[in-house]
Computed example of a mutant assay.
Amino acid sequence: MTSFKASTLLNQLVSVAALAENRVIGNDGGVPWPDLPEDVRQYRERVADSPVILGHKTFESMRGDLPGRRQIVVSRTVDAVDDPTAVVAGGVDAAIELARELVGDRADPETAVYVLGGGTIYELFQPRVDRMALSHVDGVYEGDTRFPAWDEVEWRVVGETEYEGFTLREWVRRSNAS
Rank of each mutant, 00 (worst) to 15 (best):
V153I: 14
V88Y: 04
D79S: 02
Y141H: 07
W150Y: 13
G91H: 03
T77W: 03
F59H: 08
V137A: 01
P127Q: 14
T161Y: 13
P148Y: 13
D93V: 08
V92F: 14
G143L: 06
P127I: 14
T145N: 03
A107R: 07
P67I: 11
T161Q: 12
E154P: 12
V87H: 05
I121P: 03
D82M: 04
G104A: 12
W155N: 09
V81E: 02
D151P: 10
A133L: 11
V157D: 14
A94C: 04
L116V: 10
I96F: 12
T58V: 04
G68C: 03
V153G: 15
A107N: 11
E110I: 09
D151W: 15
E152N: 12
L66S: 09
T58Q: 03
R100V: 02
H56I: 14
S61G: 04
Y122D: 09
V78Q: 09
Y114D: 04
M62R: 05
P127T: 10
P148I: 05
L116Q: 09
D105W: 12
G119V: 08
G68R: 05
V140D: 15
P51S: 13
P148Q: 07
E110A: 13
V88A: 03
R131T: 07
L98A: 11
V87P: 13
S135R: 01
I72R: 01
D79T: 00
V140A: 06
W150T: 11
T111W: 11
L134Q: 03
P84V: 05
H136W: 11
V113Q: 07
T77H: 15
D65G: 15
D82E: 09
I121L: 08
P148W: 06
A80M: 08
R100M: 07
R106L: 09
A149Y: 04
V88R: 01
